[in-house]
Nucleic acid binder design. Structure first.
Length: 817
RNA sequence: GCCCAGGUGGCGGAAUAGGUAGACGCACCGCACUCAAAAUGCGGCGGGGUAACCCCCCAUGCCGGUUCGAUUCCGGCUCUGGGCACCA
């Protein structure tokens, strides 16, 4: 063993050993229970960033911990390889997206390997390869045939100069990022997946995911947005038909003073035909992007259509307005406006001088005459005809049945969740396997013709989808009638690939099926690790696909991820590391200077995984110092001269050994249950500090020191696997850490005879005493009251009561003066 | 605008089930070693009061509440971050 800690030598030796022993290549024949540990696969953007290093270290720590605890651990890796950046790079550098992507993958694979992750690299997948995406196309066809995929139009951001569809992130302040001109909303046909068919199950199953953060489940619940309410039908005044709206506040129905429809609503479009001013207004609503964040920040604008509807219960004529705050995508694309009890309606009514009619009185509040704000609280109905005096809750039921009686409404459930539009007018994605035939319509590609291969040799210009100009791709024959036909040139949303990759890792080489029997062994994923930014979309789509695959008979589990750990971001100087801010840290540079173990240790020590992590060069230095000290401690121990002195089990040694076993208990809990690696490291550091205080050199001391070092190396090994692998080999020359077991707790060593507790007077700390662990409450209380530090706070006062918390404190509460 | 988090010393953070606020590390200061420096080791380190390392007071973004006791629970506010369906 060398006296000096040389990270590069240690790490290359360890990595070579692991590779030659095929240590992390797994199969399903093990008799140990399986543990599938998955970190979100990276987009091959060029090189690893610190967020990746953090993500994959967290996953690796858990994988290695569970391996030491006897599990058959699968930790795979792959590439989320389709996506927009490859096209942007192609436009900028003229490199085809495929070349750019494969080069990035090769480079990043090398970087990942240098981190020393316990990955089964034989299961690597890249979603841009036909042997992966053919199964996505296969499933698409199954869904198409089941009616779970359908076609309708949807709004997109249209750049009128570049003549192309823009992603939301490519729209800045309502303008195209390259052209700089205002974007427009445009309706185009798209394929949709019926995720709303699964809304109820996706919502309900959240209650059965105890291993998910509450925060994520709340976000998903709100996103699905189940609401129970009433669909109200307002008969049109000038013709047959009704205007449908959905409301959760039927109790306010008698306070409706107008109705508002989205600019794209058929009623608005019809009214605009004979009204050029309205047509111009509707046209102006088309300006700007489609994202909800953009739309909801717009100043509220509207215009009367000149049409009226009848109130379903009073028959009163109510004006129909077009309003830019009404979204076509939610509910019926129309709302009943109750300005007195809805903030947006209120603001709009004020702006356009529409009447405000209060119908709910909440609490002791006085009835407003000319109110200055909307009150959205539930209360008691006023000025509401036969419903006056009812509570909101009762009124909702009564009004719903009154509507049902006249055939102008019904109670129903509405979801905020919308069906998933998966068509993208982009080249670098999975081709949608549909052939358009003028006679047969949209015909799915027959299974025998899969995959529909994406041509990789292309020139990307940024204007339109290059696939559309490739006649060899587009021109084909109809599989049904044989006549001339053309292929769909849209590709799928890249969220589709990442919605099922976790299942493919189980059988990555299967050429006969999307997933095979091995998926039943590995699924569900026991631990999923990834960024909190994926809390809604990716995780919801992945849950949805799991259910689709289950219903296609491929797998049997209901949910894909048993436990979810959402990691926080890596910050430097208080903000997210990014190229544009110039505050990035290069992982390669870091590993070159200090080694992967130091990088891993710092990242795990700096904060708990689910919080953001503030980068600190000095902190990295500190992590490196600790590893150097660990190395030197083991080296010094091994180099101790022989001794014959037997020695005594001193108080210090007993305490040290107790600390070791307390640390094992704590670290095991920190890795396994709490997943707070920072506190695990801190307690190992404390153990190390105690170790270094021991001066005794006899055989008894040495035995305990060895016990400490061997255990410490195992405790740290999930976080800093290379140095621990080598140190373990030095401590136990004929053994390998790869075959080691997790540390065992000696309950005997944990036993204590005395403990310290604190004494409070009126909740304030006034003293501390050491007591026998088995002391009775009475004994402790009398000791506390007679304590010299405490007595003076009790002088002349009457004790009202004494609170006793075993192992912690005695609180003496005095009478008030 | 809507939904979800977070705010504790000079800094990263700890306090796990309402029970000793500041573990562990960084930075800084002092000392030892050294011709010197680096490295290493030892000690100190929230603010204020005080002759005092006795002790007391203040202190976990802000305001209020519940409790014997609140960083932790509740209400209101504020700032920062994540997401908002075509970035991944």
């Amino acid at each position: 063993m060398q006296a000096q800690y040389m990270p590069s030598e240690v790490e290359s030796k360890a990595q070579q050993d692991w590779e030659s022993r095929r240590a992390f290549i797994v199969d399903e024949s093990s008799d140990r229970p399986k543990y599938y540990c998955l970190s979100m696969f990276p987009y091959p953007s060029g090189k690893l960033h610190m967020g990746h290093v953090r993500n994959y270290t967290i996953g690796d720590v858990l994988a290695r911990f569970h391996r030491l605890n006897g599990r058959n651990v699968l930790q795979p890796m792959g590439w989320d390889a389709f996506g927009l950046p490859a096209e942007n790079a192609a436009i900028k550098h003229g490199t085809p997206p495929a070349d750019w992507t494969y080069n990035n993958i090769d480079f990043m694979r090398g970087q990942l390997k240098s981190l020393g992750l316990a990955i089964d690299w034989e299961r690597e997948i890249a979603t841009c390869k036909p042997d992966y995406y053919r199964w996505e196309q296969w499933l698409f066809i199954q869904l198409f045939e089941k009616g779970l995929v359908y076609k309708k139009t949807a709004q997109v951001n249209w750049d009128p100069v570049d003549q192309t569809v823009l992603a939301n992130e490519q729209v800045i302040d309502g303008c195209g990022w390259r052209s700089g001109v205002p974007v427009e909303k445009r309706e185009i046909p798209m394929y949709f997946m019926r995720i709303t068919d699964y809304a109820e199950e996706l919502l309900e199953e959240l209650d059965h995911l105890p291993g998910w953060p509450e925060q994520v489940k709340t976000m998903q619940r709100n996103w699905i947005g189940r609401s129970v309410g009433v669909e109200v039908h307002f008969p049109l005044l000038s013709e047959d038909g009704v205007l449908k709206v959905f409301t959760t506040r039927a109790d306010t129905l008698m306070g409706v003073t107008y109705v508002a429809v989205a600019a794209e609503h058929p009623l608005a479009e019809k009214a605009a035909r004979n009204n050029p001013v309205l047509a111009r207004f509707i046209q102006s609503c088309r300006q700007g992007g489609v994202s909800e964040a953009f739309v909801s920040n717009l100043e509220k604008k509207g215009m009367s259509t000149g049409d009226y509807v009848r109130h379903p219960l009073t028959g009163e004529a109510l004006p129909v307005w077009v309003a830019n705050y009404v979204l076509m995508g939610y509910g019926e694309g129309a709302v009943m406006a109750v300005p007195a009890h809805d903030e947006r309606d209120f603001e709009f009514a004020k702006e356009y001088g529409l009447p405000i009619k209060p119908v709910i009185c909440s609490g002791s509040e006085r009835i407003m005459s000319s109110c200055d704000k909307a009150t959205t609280d539930y209360g008691v109905l006023i000025d509401s005809g036969v419903f006056t005096g009812l509570s909101s809750k009762e009124a909702i039921i009564r009004i719903a049945s009154a509507l049902e009686e006249v055939g102008l409404g019904l109670s129903r459930v509405q979801y905020r969740l919308r069906d998933w539009g998966i068509s993208r007018q982009r080249y670098w994605g999975c081709p949608i396997p549909i052939i358009h035939c003028s006679l047969c319509g949209d015909v799915p590609v027959p299974e025998r013709d899969l995959p529909v291969i994406l041509p990789e040799a292309v020139t990307v210009t940024g204007a339109g989808n290059p696939l559309a100009y490739m006649s060899a791709f587009v021109e084909t024959t109809c599989p049904r009638c044989g006549s001339e036909a053309h292929r769909e040139t849209d590709t799928m949303d890249t969220f589709v690939e990442s919605s099922w990759y976790y299942a493919r890792y189980a059988s990555p080489d299967s050429s006969q099926a999307m997933v095979d029997d091995r998926a039943r062994y590995w699924l569900p994923v026991d631990q999923y690790v990834g960024g909190i930014e994926h809390a809604i979309l990716h995780l919801l789509y992945a849950r949805f696909f799991n259910k689709l695959m289950r219903d296609a008979g491929l797998i049997t589990n209901n949910e894909p991820f048993v436990n979810l750990l959402t990691q926080g971001m890596v910050l430097k100087d208080g903000s997210k590391m990014s190229k544009s801010k110039g505050n990035t840290v290069d992982p390669d540079q870091l590993i070159k200077q200090y080694g992967a173990d130091t990088a891993r240790l710092f990242m795990m020590f700096a904060s708990p995984p689910d919080q953001s992590l503030e980068w600190s060069d000095a902190g990295v230095e500190g992590a490196f110092r600790f590893l150097r000290r660990l190395w030197k401690t083991v080296y010094d121990f091994m180099a101790l001269p022989e001794t014959q002195e037997v020695g005594q089990m001193s108080v210090e040694l007993i305490a040290l050994r107790r600390q070791l076993h307390e640390t094992i208990v704590k670290v095991t809990d920190d890795y396994g249950r709490r997943q707070t690696f920072n506190t695990a490291i801190a307690s190992i550091m404390e153990l190390m500090n105690s170790f270094l205080k021991i001066q005794e050199v006899h055989l008894t001391a040495r035995k305990i020191q060895r016990e400490l070092l061997e255990n410490m190396v195992i405790l740290l090994s999930p976080i800093v696997p290379h140095i621990c692998y080598v140190l373990y080999g030095a401590l136990r020359p004929n053994e390998s850490l790869l075959d080691a077991q997790w540390c065992l707790v000696d309950e005997e060593a944990l036993k204590k005879e005395e403990e310290e507790i604190v004494i409070q007077v009126n909740g304030r700390l006034r003293g501390r005493i050491t007591i026998p662990v088995n002391a009775t409450r009475e004994w402790v209380e009398s000791r506390a009251e007679s304590d010299s530090q405490v007595e003076r706070f009790l002088a002349g006062k009457k004790i009202r009561k004494v609170v006793f918390v075993p192992h912690r404190l005695v609180n003496i509460v005095l009478e008030n003066e």
